[in-house]
């Protein structure tokens, strides 16, 4: 008994794909309450009776007190940036997401600088991760005041909330 290795300088590479299959993931109805709020340009969160935190989007259980968060609260459309990161100018052929080039598909403009941010909306106790739009990348800072940028005609979808912009 001991270390066994086939006598050869190199392994043989064999191509293969793994289809990990199709599933029925189980979602919660809470997201429906949230998107109904978005249609009315309202941000809905859930309230924890244990620690008093308001979490946006709403969730069933408080992560730390494990209490059921069955009350809803509407929080402000205005908030504060708690964290940001800044991409270099995005160029065609540099980034692939879900198998597509976001510049080629028009999701991001050639040379666009993308600024993902965390925002704590007034009246909430959570960060919402989204993007900062209509802003100078050099001016962005932690503590910057922002407001929700809604699409012109909200449809009751997560995409009603385009991002945030400076106040």
């Amino acid at each position: 008994m001991g270390y066994v290795k086939e006598e050869r300088p190199m392994t043989i590479g064999v191509e293969g794909t793994w289809n990990i299959g199709s599933y029925h993931y189980k979602g919660s109805r809470l997201i429906e309450e949230y998107v109904k709020g978005l249609k009315q340009k309202k941000l809905i969160g859930s309230f924890c009776p244990g620690c008093g935190k308001v979490i946006v989007p709403p969730r069933n259980l408080c992560g730390r007190c494990h209490r059921i968060m069955d009350r809803r609260k509407i929080v402000s459309n205005m908030g504060t940036i708690t964290c940001f990161i800044v991409s270099p100018p995005i160029e065609k052929g540099k980034l692939k997401v879900l198998g597509m080039d976001p510049v080629e598909t028009g999701l991001i403009k050639e040379g666009e600088v993308v600024i993902p941010v965390f925002v704590k909306f007034d009246g909430s106790d959570s960060n919402t991760d989204t993007i900062l739009l209509n802003a100078d990348p050099k001016a962005v800072h932690i503590g910057m005041r922002v407001k929700v940028l809604w699409v012109k005609e909200p449809q009751g979808a997560l995409s009603d909330f385009e991002g945030v912009e400076p106040v």
């Binding site: 997201i31 429906e32 998107v35 997401v97 991001i108 993308v114 909330f161 991002g163």
Partner: peptide, 11 residues
């Protein structure tokens, strides 16, 4: 529920 692709790509 209509997740924004641009938002997904960016974040």
């Amino acid at each position: 529920y209509g997740l924004s692709l641009k938002n997904l790509v960016a974040t």
